[in-house]
Design a protein around this nucleic acid. Structure first.
Lengths: 121, 121
DNA sequence: ACTCGGTATCGATGAGTGTCAACATAGACA
DNA sequence: TGTCTATGTTGACACTCATCGATACCGAGT
């Protein structure tokens, strides 16, 4: 395997849209939709990933260099592993610029999760 | 143990409020907040639990009898186990009425998750 | 070409989780 | 009391996952 062998799971196309699911109150989730959403929720089901994600999301422009967010109390390989998980779930995208790698939030995917939890109160 | 011996983890007090965390864009999550939120997201990180939750949430009044939602492709003990997880995470509450047990959604906790994912759009 | 700092991958390990069969418990009703 | 149905609990097993050290990869300088 040479290099761009990434493929990126892209549970729901990461970058672009991803309506996927209506609010849960609107009806029962199908098996397929449930599995898709479960992947996204699982990505945020770890404290370390949650902190990494929040560090990126709260950064100016919704983007941050790995070097700026790595201080979460675990080793560098572990940080890299968690960022990969978030990428595979479609919640973050990454881009290398010179020496450093920058991660950005994928707003549409996050919006899909939020919308699904909207109980329209 | 007589009866109301439940204790219910109540990560954030299940029933009442639970602001817990502001939108992720507002700043980095603290270690504590990250751990609290992780518990809730983890509760929804399984397809079976997601379907059970959606069945309750989409039911009239946000309430459903176990007997009405048990058809998710796994055994009865497994359904019971998943419902317990959702209860412990504060996403559902349960109440026995005669022969049947009814589960209700805890709107405030779900709202907290949704609010956290609100990217200010 | 060589070195150096930043990041990703690999392999191993211990902890956690989903699942089921078997059993226990709680009401309802005879 | 005894039986029947609806749920919850227990114990076991296979599987996944978080974590780390070691190592590989990639750009940038020298």
């Amino acid at each position: 395997m040479s290099k761009s062998e990434v493929v990126e799971l892209s549970v729901l196309d990461a970058g672009t849209v991803a309506p996927c699911c209506p609010p849960i109150t609107a009806g029962e989730l199908s098996q397929d939709d449930a599995e898709k959403m479960a992947v996204m929720f699982k990505a945020l089901s770890d404290p370390v990933r949650l902190r990494l994600f929040s560090k990126v999301a709260s950064h100016a422009g919704g983007e941050a260099c790995v070097c700026e967010i790595s201080d979460v109390g675990v080793s560098q390989p572990t940080v890299s592993h968690h960022l990969k998980k978030l990428r595979e779930a479609g919640l973050l995208t990454s881009e290398r610029r010179g020496t450093w790698v920058y991660y950005q939030v994928a707003p549409s995917v996050v919006a899909a999760m939020s919308a699904m939890l909207d109980l329209r109160s």
